[in-house]
Write a protein that binds this DNA or RNA. Structure first.
Length: 354
DNA sequence: AAGCCGGGGTT
DNA sequence: AACCCAGGCTT
């Protein structure tokens, strides 16, 4: 069956697609891979400055494999989903050690690398090596769900399976590199989530959802669920030198591996913070100064952060190691910090408005 | 199958 | 404030 789908899409891409993205320059598997990981659940405009800074610091897979993990995390600070950064470096080390520094051109082998799933593996194979492989990211899901009027939320296995079948069926044997970029560009520029520009779409005449006047009904939306509210104290422990005590978060869980302010049990009253710092950290502190609290929202819960500033009289008492350490303000800001903590340390008045 | 994992842009 | 974004991993 002749694929009008791919032909029309490619014709549109030649005239209207995005041909100037940073990862298109000097394209190689490393650059494609880093861009694909950064772009997971993250919009193109957000990624671009991070990608450029990352490439300047880690120009190839060896530079990334050999870098201190804190250096990698600091370049990820503010991007979110920090497991991506740790998986990225782990995969770089695997590529150097097991693949001689060359990314495989086989999706199955790519999927063995940390952080690379089915769609990302296909994107690397298609973009970097021009080999036929079907991708299915958020853009492609939307285009295909509308084109074929596939009902249901793509988070459901049955829906996802149908979309993958359509994705495989439409992927051409030739110009795979361009096709892959084309279908993502169409989803990002024309077949947008709201107010799709159907009048400008090269696939309009065969689009089932459009024929029904129901483009925006697809794909089905995720079932909504109330996000729980959590709360925590964040201690800004400052010594006479103006240094701040930071704590490295465990590798798994929220903000995994990042440096952050020490958290204290939310059950504590403001009048108990002083004693608690002495008992838990061995720090003798002055009276806590309460900073305006603010609410930070994650994908699955809200967190109310109540900062408290305490002056520390015996800074040396706290451990100075890989988990708990004192930093001058500038040193702290050079680390991988969670976005709201960075805001709190740079513009506390801004944080209060969040 | 469902939950976990961020931050920001859009509506 | 809800929704979603060039998803993958864990349970």
């Amino acid at each position: 069956m002749p694929e009008r789908f791919a032909d029309r899409l490619l014709d549109w891409y030649d005239r209207h697609g995005r041909h100037d993205l940073p990862w298109h320059d000097n394209q190689n598997a490393y650059r494609v891979w880093v861009s694909e990981i950064m772009l997971q659940q993250t919009q193109v405009t957000t990624v671009i400055p991070y990608f450029n800074a990352f490439m300047a610091r880690f120009p190839d897979v060896h530079a990334l494999a050999n870098a201190p993990v804190d250096d990698v995390l600091s370049h990820w600070s503010g991007l979110g989903y920090y497991a991506r950064a740790r998986n990225l470096q782990k995969a770089a080390q695997t590529v150097v050690q097991d693949f001689g520094g060359e990314f495989p051109d086989d999706p199955e082998q790519l999927e063995t690398l940390s952080g690379i799933g089915r769609s990302t593996a296909a994107a690397i194979v298609a973009q970097a090596y021009g080999k036929r492989a079907a991708i299915l990211d958020g853009n492609v899901k939307r285009v295909l769900a509308r084109y074929h009027a596939v009902p249901g939320w793509p988070g459901q296995t049955a829906v996802l399976k149908q979309l993958w079948q359509h994705a495989e069926a439409h992927t051409p044997d030739t110009r795979v590199r361009d096709y892959t970029q084309a279908i993502m560009d169409l989803g990002a520029m024309v077949c947008t989530r709201s107010r799709p520009k159907c009048e400008a779409c090269p696939l309009q005449q065969d689009c089932t959802a459009h024929a029904r006047g129901e483009a925006t009904l697809y794909p089905g939306s995720k079932p909504k669920k109330a996000k729980p509210e959590k709360t925590t104290w964040m201690a800004i422990l400052e010594d006479a030198d103006g240094r701040i005590l930071l704590e490295r978060r465990p590798p798994t869980g929220i903000w995994g591996g990042l440096w952050s302010l020490p958290e204290l049990d939310p059950a504590l009253g403001a009048d108990e913070l002083q004693d608690h710092c002495e008992q838990k950290l061995g720090l003798r502190c002055g009276e806590p100064e309460l900073i305006s609290g603010f609410r930070h929202t994650f994908s699955h819960y809200h967190l109310h952060i109540q900062p408290a500033r305490l002056l520390v009289h015996n800074a040396n008492a706290a451990a100075d190691d890989d988990v708990l350490a004192w930093f001058h303000r500038d040193e702290a800001l050079a680390l991988g910090l969670p976005a709201p903590i960075r805001t709190l340390l740079t513009e506390p008045e801004q944080a209060a408005l969040l």
